[in-house]
Design a protein around this nucleic acid. Structure first.
Lengths: 198, 198
DNA sequence: CAGCGAGGTTAGCGGTCGTTAACCTGAAGG
DNA sequence: CCTTCAGGTTAACGACCGCTAACCTCGCTG
């Protein structure tokens, strides 16, 4: 809910570094001292900005889910009246951008969910579910012969495909961001098409 | 390397439960007391069977990688002279069987690799690399116009697709194992086909 | 039947980790 | 110039965790 205009605040620095470290070594594998060191302060200084380690993870995961859902909703509104195929392309493009630009977050997104308090976990799951249902609707418009459970499975599987980016490029050996995005896009469409075939 | 004929030994019980717990709560999130309790003994009794918690994870991850690679090699040998498409189908089928039957292991496989000692991690990575290269070769036989880096990316992405099964069925709400396997198979082929298209 | 090894048990040590307490400091404001 | 307060610091506490030590108890086997 922040206005999000200025240079990165301390809170945002912390969240960014925490995301990277959590993705690298897992939530339980990172100590608060390490997170502090990553932003130049040390240890308990973090507690001036967050209630605790759990709160950082919660804010990260809620932020991811919310951002994905909000972006998808925006894309659906912008594309009003256009062909369902184009809407699906837009959803895929948005998800790929996210997966390529915020790899640590994508990694956390389906890896550390169970480390949340009940309330936060429920919220994140609800946002995720809305995101999935939104995709399912669009997919079923493009492939009407696809039953709903199969469509949902297909959407989850395509997420798995798109979220595989962290496994791809260790340094920068992959054939460029644009080419990777295009390859992923084509494969996602191909997977959906194959799922929707009789 | 065990002969693997009799009823499950204690070691195997422990490995199975440890895999489940590691997949559910992460390596650092599970205590040895919990693993012990899951097999009816408690705490340090595990040290009669394993050198330590790390050793359990190592044996699990090496076992997974080795099993995947060995299975793939066997499938390649069995299918000698048949069409490359059939070989690819066989590889996909094997991977799906594994993903559906050993979900905790598939989850661990790309999640807890960094928690290993250097020697074990190198071994696992080597096995994984061989497995990937084996797929890449077959994929490039089926789609010769696909450049090698793109083929490797495509293989990783399809692994992401196939390994998404843990996210699918919480209870047993999915449309049956057979239907799920078939859907995944079709989607994988569709993804490869789209990757290989000009 | 003595003995012995496999496979348990409980107690406890040493280290780590999240968190709190108490204190410091420099910049803004009346 | 004094106060305040945001944003740090270090010390330390309590809990937990991996692992070891010491001990127990069977079921074999010579």
């Amino acid at each position: 809910m922040a206005t999000r205009t200025d240079a990165p605040t301390r809170r945002e620095q912390i969240l960014k570094e925490a995301a990277r470290l959590f993705a690298e070594r897992g939530f339980h594998g990172v100590g608060v001292d390490e997170i502090g060191a990553a932003v130049g302060i040390s240890g308990p200084g973090l507690y001036r900005h967050f209630a605790g380690k759990d709160a950082m993870l919660a804010e990260l995961l809620v932020g991811i889910s919310d951002s994905l859902l909000t972006g998808a909703k925006r894309r659906l509104e912008e594309a009003d009246g256009v062909a369902p195929e184009a809407v699906l392309d837009s959803l895929i493009e948005g998800h790929i951008d996210f997966a390529l630009d915020d790899r640590p977050l994508i990694t956390l997104h389906d890896r550390e969910l169970d480390r949340l308090r009940d309330a936060d976990r429920k919220l994140v799951r609800q946002l995720q579910r809305q995101y999935v249902e939104l995709w399912v609707e669009v997919v079923r418009e493009v492939y009407p012969e696809l039953a709903e459970p199969a469509a949902r499975s297909a959407v989850h599987s395509v997420f798995g495909l798109l979220n595989s980016t962290p496994h791809l490029a260790r340094p920068g050996s992959l054939p460029g961001r644009g080419a990777t995005a295009e390859l992923l896009h084509r494969m996602a469409r191909g997977a959906f098409a194959a799922a929707g075939a009789r």
